[in-house]
Each structure stands twice: as C-alpha cells, then as structure tokens.
Design a protein around this nucleic acid. Structure first.
Lengths: 229, 229
DNA sequence: ACAAACAGAAGTGCATACAGTTTGCGCATT
DNA sequence: AATGCGCAAACTGTATGCACTTCTGTTTGT
C-alpha cells in the first residue's frame, strides 16, 4: 500500500522534476492509492519523493488545473471528490466526446487504422473468454485510445483524455460486475462494425450508449462506496 | 501598451495571489497584449506585479496546464503559438462542443432560460444596426455563455469555456470583416429558433455551422497575420 | 458534563538564496 | 567577412526560511 514511488533524480538538471511529480501523484490518484477526499500534505509528499516543497507545490497547482485535486486557500490540497451531479455531467460529457470520436473515426480513419482497430478488437476476444479483468482493462484503454486518435483531431483527443483522467478515480471497478466483460466486447463490436462501414451516425450512437453504460455501472458502484470526506 | 495591471495586495493573507496572477496574465494573453510567441520572463512578471517569482512560477504552471502558455525546460515560458493544424482542430472541437451545447439547450433549457435567451438575442439587433463591433463582441460572449449553461452539464460547460479561452488569442478580429455582424446575428437567430422549437438536431446543426464560419474567418485572418516566433 | 478559550504544533503562502543552464557578446581565428 | 570559442550576464530550477493561518488537544469557566 505504501509502496515508495521512485522518481529518478539524475545529477544533471533535466528540468522535469515537476512533470515527474505530476505523473507520480496523478498515478496515485488514478490508481486509487489516494482516494477522493484524501489530504495531500506538501511536506509529506516532499519527503516521500525526496524533493523540497517548491516543486511539490507546482505539481499540485498543475493537478488542480487538471481537476484532479482541489486547493482550498491556506489548507491542504485534497483529492477532488465531486458531487453526484458533477460526476453525472462528466460521464455524460465523456459519452458525448466518445461519440464524436467514433463518428469522426468512422469518417476519417486510414485503412491501416481501421485494420489495426479490428485486429485489436478481434484479439481481445481471447481476454474475454479467459475472463481476465485486468488484461481487459488495459486492452479497453488502448481500444478507446484508438478511437480518440482515429478522429484525427488533436484538441478533441486532448480533451477526451483529460476528461478520462479526471473520471478515472470514479470508475475503477467497472469490469468487476458479472458479465460486464462480454457486454463490453459486444458493444465494442458494434462500434467497430460501424467504423468499418464508415457509418458515422451508427458509430456515434454505439459509442454513446457504450460509454453511458459504463457510466451507469460506475455511478452505481461509486454511490455504493462510502465517499469519505 | 504597458498599462500596469494592479493586483490588489491586501495586508491580510487571502491566499489567492496566484489566482489573481493567473487571471491577470491570461487577460493579457486573451486581450492580445501578449501575443502568441511572446516570452514571459518570470522575474519581469514578478516585478510588474510586485510579487516574488514563486507565485509567478505557479501561475505560469497553471496557465501551461490550461494550454495558454508553454514552458520549455530551462527556458522562458512563451505564449502558446499553435500550428495551423492544431488551430483547425481547436476550431473544429469548438464547433462540436457548441453543437452539443445547443442540442442540449434545446432539450433542457427552462422556460425562463429560453425567454432570457430570446430577449437577449432580440435586444442585440440594435447593436447590429449600430454596427458597434465592440458591444457586439461582448453580447456575443454572453449569448454563447447562455448556450453553455443552458445545456445543464457543468463539465461540458467547463470544457467549452476552456477551449474558448485557449482559442481567444487567435480569433480576436472576428467581427472586423465586413457584414460579419449581420451574418452572425442571422446565424444566432437560427440557433434561437431551433432552441425555442425544442429542435435539438436543428440547433446542433445551426450552432455547428455558426462556429465553423467564425473559425474559417479567424483562420484566414490568423494566417494573414505574421505569427512571429 | 459540556462548551468556549487558548496554546502549541503543524501546515500553507510567499520571499529569498543559491546552484545550474541558457544566451548574448566580444574576441580570436580562418 | 564569416565562424567558432569563451566568458559574463540573465534566467530558470530547487531549497530554505519566515510569517501567517489552521488544526488539535487541553484547560478553564459555567
């Protein structure tokens, strides 16, 4: 639980200490090691990562801009814990954004991108058969990444990735639900077919409902978990 | 040109020095006082705002996370100057986001919100007749804000506002083009009608093409302006 | 017994200090 | 004249220090 994250500290000045901290801390948040509501003490983090408070503060500021933490004035930073309403709005936004990506992917993906998407999707069926939730989660991330990059719009990609990161702390258990793996694969199948058919509208719909379902599942799970203050 | 922005420095510790800096600097960028490519020297900004470098650095870090500024390691921060491709992707994203907002607004706005939107729109006709570009720009911002809030989705609102801020440095002259005011009003009219009719699809289309047109106009203007390095 | 008050500890906000990196300029060399 | 070198100035990255705020546990008054 308290595994020490080793930030490589070169002797040379690479100038990316803060970036490393941002990654390290956001990993702690996204992975769930730091749950929503957890306090982030500057001194403690500084000690943990063997740096001074200055870069830690900058990292927290950046994480705050990304929406992963909140920084009430004169008080400790806290892992963002959003209201149910805002969580719903994030899931809805995610569905809208993925729908856009799916539509644009259907219209714009290169032949190679289409091939690779289909291959990736076909190969993932083995994971479903094996019931390997962990592996499927990794594949799922990659699958959606393909959708984002296939839209050929760098800003939308950036936006959807940021939204996903912000949502991550609240959707951790999405593949625990019985039968969710197979359903997820079926939904992916619909998206892939629509994209291969260059049917933007169908891809958009399929992606929207796929993400909405994930949202519903995560929301029920999130509300069943105690969100400590 | 070198008007000093006065950040009010109370004797009490409000703890929002950095927030004020972020606002002040982003205003300088959005208003065009600091153009894309301009260097942001930490010491200079610190002197200008009568603070030390520490809060300036944190503000720059946050502006960087917002995409308004870039921070190459060991070098001065600069106002973000994006490639033409990325600029196009931002305008396209903006159109997609506004289309979503318009659709959701058509579906979800309260009676009061609809009334106020229509009233605001009707009143703006006087501004168009007067040809007051400055006033129309302010009204236009408010009009679009209504669209964003009418969608009743806090996260989408946040996202679209952030995208607009990022786009601002590149769309400054949008109402200089001859006849653009009247065209803009006509396009708004289409959006308002669709929203009042609760016709989400029509509202979405109207908003998409409205924003796309603005994008085209701004892009031609931006490419005609020298983007200095 | 409970609540208000207080003192010490802990933590944040900002300024300053210093080390390392980049940059610009003068000078020597070709 | 153009190019490469080296040094100094300017600037960034990080650590540290101090003032102020918040938190916490205890004491005091009712």
């Amino acid at each position: 639980m308290d595994k020490v994250i080793d930030i490589v500290r070169e002797l040379v000045r690479t100038g990316d200490t803060v970036e490393q901290l941002v990654r390290a801390i956001s990993d702690l948040i996204i992975s769930g090691d730091l749950q929503p509501g957890a306090k982030l003490d500057e001194g403690g983090l500084a000690g943990r990562f063997q740096v001074s408070r200055t870069p830690v503060r900058e990292a927290l500021r950046q994480l705050c801009a990304m929406g992963l933490v909140e920084r009430p004035p004169n008080r400790s930073a806290v892992v963002t814990n959003v209201s149910g309403d805002f969580l719903s709005s994030m899931f809805e936004a995610m569905a809208e954004l993925e729908a856009i990506c799916a539509r644009l992917s259907a219209e714009r993906m290169t032949a190679q991108e289409r091939e690779e998407l289909e291959r990736l999707h076909r190969e993932s069926f083995d994971i479903v058969k094996a019931g390997a939730s962990e592996d499927y989660a990794a594949f799922n991330t990659e699958f959606h990444n393909r959708l984002y990059s296939g839209a050929h719009n760098a800003h939308i990609q950036e936006t959807v990735l940021q939204t996903r990161a912000r949502l991550a702390p609240f959707r951790r258990a999405q593949f625990r639900l019985e039968g969710r793996l197979q359903h997820s694969w079926d939904e992916h199948d619909g998206i892939v077919r629509a994209i291969l058919n260059r049917d933007g509208a169908a891809a958009s719909c399929a992606a929207y409902s796929h993400v909405s379902i994930v949202g519903d599942a995560s929301r029920t799970f999130a509300s069943s978990t105690a969100t400590r203050t």
